[in-house]
Write a protein that binds this DNA or RNA. Structure first.
Lengths: 158, 158
DNA sequence: TGTTTTTTGTCAATCATTTCTAATTTTTAT
DNA sequence: ATAAAAATTAGAAATGATTGACAAAAAACA
């Protein structure tokens, strides 16, 4: 009747929910949900909104899973991205950052990047869909995704 | 009376015009217009719309300026970017690409990237300015620039 | 239980980019 | 002009993020 998400009560439920989702997606492709993969997704869930980079994720995962190797974290992040559990974001700061995917279709968001302090603010932007339709017509191009970044100065830095 | 651009007749004029612009901007900051810098900008002008990466630019510049070093090209591209003569574009293909800046305020454009063949199509998008105003109000964020990428499948790949 | 497959950790390799250095060119002061 | 100072360069070495190779460990399978 309802989507799984409707029953969410607390953080624990949310983790379980996402972890189940990952398990299913992995199984579809013949992959396994290992402790390392579990720990990595855990960290990303625990730090939602943080836009952690690979090294930062590695350091945090290492606390709970000290024997893990950096290459495994790289491989796992790649896998989580393929499984569409997370998204890679490029802030032109020389490394890849990741954020947890929102599995709600309507909750599109993009980033405001402060050129002064580096803060990242998330903005919801449904208004882009108008544009997409127009572009699809004008250029005969089938749009699957988009990435939008706004650069400027945040309120604190003025 | 008119902007310099109004008198443009042909490619040669255009190169001269942009080169003069660069010379001025460099002088403002106390930099010099060296043959290497001149050759690099020349190549980018000659290949407008190509979105060349650093190695490609290096190879082309080397034809006219064989003694140039790769590091110089990197430094020069950085400088041209600072001087706002060119823009760095990141297509998530592991290297930086550059395009000549359009010095016409109204000619904003962004990129459609085909996930199948890698083609880059340029789209004009004035419509984003509405969004910017709204964001500036809602988030008290002063927007200076934005980057938009659309990913999908181009007409040839369908 | 033994065999195959997947995943892992370690370490080496890669690739784009930056830094270092001494040499060269250009500017400036004399 | 000409010597000293400053900017720029080429080439090589260093860096830093990411990937690849490989043998060992873990899990699935037969």
């Amino acid at each position: 009747m309802f989507e799984k998400g409707y029953y969410l009560r607390n953080e624990g439920d949310k983790v379980d929910n996402l972890m189940d989702m990952l398990k299913e997606k992995l199984k579809e492709k013949g992959y396994k949900l290992t402790p390392q993969r579990r720990a990595t997704l855990d960290i990303i869930i625990d730090n939602q909104g943080q836009h952690l980079n690979t090294e930062e994720i590695y350091a945090l995962v290492k606390e709970k899973c000290p024997e893990i190797g950096l290459a495994t974290v790289y491989r796992t992040l790649q896998l989580l991205d393929e499984m569409q559990m997370i998204s890679k974001i490029n802030l032109d700061d020389g490394c890849s950052r990741y954020e947890l995917n929102d599995h709600d279709e309507d909750h599109q968001h993009h980033h405001l990047i402060c050129e002064s302090c580096g803060t990242i603010i998330e903005v919801e932007l449904d208004l882009l869909e108008h544009l997409e339709e127009e572009i699809e017509k004008n250029h005969d191009f089938e749009i699957k995704d988009h990435k939008v970044k706004f650069f400027g100065i945040c309120s604190k830095c003025r």
